[in-house]
Design a protein around this nucleic acid. Structure first.
Length: 219
DNA sequence: GCCAACGTTGGC
DNA sequence: GCCAACGTTGGC
């Protein structure tokens, strides 16, 4: 399961102990878990079912370790499957814990020449303990996390397909700006409103809109 | 390489 | 429990 890899996020996160989900007390709550949207006609919560996950496709060394993990790297693995370890941000972790097997996510290339949406992946294993938090050699080792009460989780994802064409961030940003003034599906996309979140939810409208761009001319 | 935005830490 | 300092994310 554990190919070395990806998702760059803080590296210490030390205490703060919080756990995000016991929700009630303490600090670090700040903007805890954004609640899923409600439907118009009922007060039922509709859980998110689409996601966007960021990873770096270009080599970058952290403590002597290359954190490069682009969609091509995922595609090259046995079963085209990998665990998504190394997430060290509570909101991102909490979103991963909401993921269900079979759900789709957009694979986003970050911190690179051309940031943007590279392809589609599928959640093939729901959240479980991220072993790298206990590994002193790992870039994302977290000395504050104890095996009897692990802080960090990961999911497994499987490559589905490349986008028919790469959708650059710049293009999405153009639509975001446009939708802000005229209305439209990317108006509130987390990619822009929560820029630094490495694992974020997408509404069905956002997800479908982004996929629809594949068949349009680059803007 | 710069640096704005923002999450985390830790003193008080 | 506030908030300034610090460190990271990630576009440009």
């Amino acid at each position: 399961m554990p190919p070395k890899k990806k998702a760059r996020v803080s590296k210490r996160a030390e205490r703060s102990g919080d756990d995000g989900e016991k929700g009630k007390s303490s600090t670090a709550k700040r903007k805890a878990a954004v609640p899923a949207k409600k439907t118009e006609t009922s007060s039922e919560f509709v859980p998110y079912s689409r996601w966007l996950m960021k990873s770096e496709p270009e080599s970058r060394f952290e403590n002597g370790i290359d954190v490069k993990f682009g969609i091509e790297d995922l595609k090259a693995l046995p079963d085209q499957t990998s665990c998504w370890d190394g997430v060290r941000n509570y909101q991102a972790r909490n979103f991963m814990r909401q993921m269900k097997e079979g759900q789709l996510a957009l694979f986003y290339h970050s911190n690179c020449k051309e940031p943007g949406i590279a392809g589609v992946i599928k959640i093939v294993k729901e959240a479980y303990v991220d072993h790298t938090q206990f590994d002193k050699k790992d870039v994302h080792y977290d000395a504050s996390s104890k095996p009897d009460n692990p802080k960090w989780s990961m999911v497994d994802v499987q490559y589905q397909r490349m986008m028919k064409r790469f959708i650059p961030l710049s293009e999405l940003k153009g639509y975001h700006t446009q939708h802000l003034s005229e209305g439209g599906p990317l108006k509130q996309a987390a990619l822009f409103t929560r820029a630094r979140l490495s694992v974020q939810p997408l509404t069905a409208e956002e997800f479908d809109f982004i996929l629809s761009l594949e068949d349009k001319e680059p803007q």
